[in-house]
Amino acid sequence: MTSTTGSAPASPATKTGRNEILYFALRNTKLLIGAFVFMVFLLGAIFGPMLATHEPLTFDAPPGLPPSAGYWFGTTLFGQDVFSQFVHGLRSSFIVGALGGITAAVIGMFVGFFAGYRGGIVDEVLNMLTNVVLVIPTFAVLLVVAAYLSVRGLGTEAMFIGLTSWPWAARAIRAQTFSLTSRDFVGMARLNGESTLRIIFGEIAPNMSSYLVMTFILLFGGAILTAATLDFIGLGPTDSISLGLMMNYSVMNAALQLGMWWWFVPPGLAITAIVGSLYVMNVGLDEVFNPKLRAL
């Protein structure tokens, strides 16, 4: 039998799988830089609001001030504290990203795992559902939804993003599950009389854990980006502040023409940096998990 292993004898592994991954993870600059940037903003979202001395949406400051000791990021044209808006906006971005990402991941995993494992008619029905959601014009639906809901909150926005962004994840997970299901250890698990859920989550999912982590990261980043887009065009939450809304307000009030850069630069930079760091982390993780991409 020289077919699969070539002629390199199976070498006794000196490192076990998990240690090896940690070893490469700690030496991957892309992953480390991405994680660092992400953590900086996450800490800002968690602790920033505690540092803010003003309410984000109250008009209690002199309008149009550039950054100063009293107002770190300056104030808006209407006398709101930009720093306070920024950290609260950061927090809502992370909340939308997490909720939207988790919703999409849960649906995508459920659909992907069952379609891939069961195959046949289950696969066809779930596949059809996936394709339907994939081609739904998201913005058109959102316009309709926005017309009916007078007050929209973060939760609604996150749910909406989660319910529309899962199809690509479902497809990717389905394909992976499909190929793992054909491996004999799944047949062995069935000969143990194990339940479908146990086989999926005990045998198949652990084999694609790296894949699932990366899928979640991409869904998370995608949700933040979509939320910012929705907020920017005025379809976001009506009862709170977010990074996208800050951009929306600043543009609507001609901040650029007035030279009030402190109003739109922080939210724009933050969105770019967070989403960018997630994608860089994703590339880094790919290198860590995939031995072929590891630089020796």
Partner: peptide, 19 residues
Amino acid sequence: ESGCGKSTLGKALIRLEER
């Protein structure tokens, strides 16, 4: 048997793999 080097020998005479 597998791992005895026979495939390595065959391949080495035409192209060395990366490893």
